[in-house]
Design a protein around this nucleic acid. Sequence first.
DNA 1: AAGCCGGGGCC
DNA 2: GGCCCAGGCTT
Length: 360
Amino acid sequence: MKNSKPQASKIQTLLLRWFRANARDLPWRRNRTPYAVWVSEIMLQQTQVATVIDYFNRFMKRFPTVEKLARAKQDSVLKLWEGLGYYSRGRNLHKAAKIIVADYGGKLPDTLEELQKIPGIGRYSAGAIASIAFNRPAPILDGNVIRVLCRIFRLKGNPKETATKNKLWQLADMLVHTKHPGDFNEAMMELGALVCTPSNPSCSSCPLNKVCAAFKHNEQDSLPVRQKKTRLPHYTIVVGIVYKDNKILIDKRRQNALLGGLWEFPGGKKRKDESFKTAVAREVKEETGITIEVGKRLCIVKHTYSHFKITLHAYVCEYKNGAAKPLACDAVKWITPKNLKKYPFPGANVKIIRQLMNAV
DNA sequence: AAGCCGGGGCC
DNA sequence: GGCCCAGGCTT
């Protein structure tokens, strides 16, 4: 580590020069207000730039200020988040907007410590907002920076482990440019996204190839080290499209559950010892209390999450009796088919809705 | 420290 | 089909 200090200014100079010539024109770089930086950083958590752009533009158009966001209904916020994933980000962003208006006079705090008290803002996002929006010399460490640092310094520890992560934070802190911290941090991420990519990095055109220890030893393809893969479990899910007087029953998932706050068709895991139709009737009864008659299967939908896979079997059903109540969910509602698009649904349910519209 | 939380881009 | 992504929260 003793030799890395003298390299810091060289790395800074090379990287900033490269960034000024190669930075992408991104919506959140047009007008770097703290609010815009904050929204973009939350959306960009574990989500690629290309995916975020349209969501960011729609969100900023609908909620141009923190006050507008604070006054919004959660359904409106989640509707704009539909399809983006990690919905706790949307819920926390909304919750945080209310806190910022109520406790911070409508202005985002400008220190690392205060920023990390805001829901949804951790060490990375606090550093990103502090450096990019407020020009404070705070380090950041995201997937891109981890990869760049592991290669430049030829770090062979597992980045998932705390000891390695601490070393990386230390390096990021040592390197961050005092006068241009935001540009430097963005440059590190930009390099990771465009040049120092996970596979087939463009080392020959990298501005840092002269100072990169991994490149020197031709180890850029094996760093950072990654851990072993595990097989994803698979579940069979049944759902009911329950009709009553040309209306369909939907329920709102519990806030802290997977896909919390989103609406869905009632259903759940099929047991091994029961038929599909029995499973649909049982799940709908357990969730909403009503009795139904299960009709024909509408479609089969496959969907992969981070930690498991599901195959969804959707059945068209007819309401029989009982009053729908939110027994295992936060709310239930009978809505007309054309109102389906007004509610936020998980991706797998959107696939079903698409099939439903095609069938009509 | 480990598990949980989505969906899409890319190879 | 697997890896990765401008991570944070909970236990």
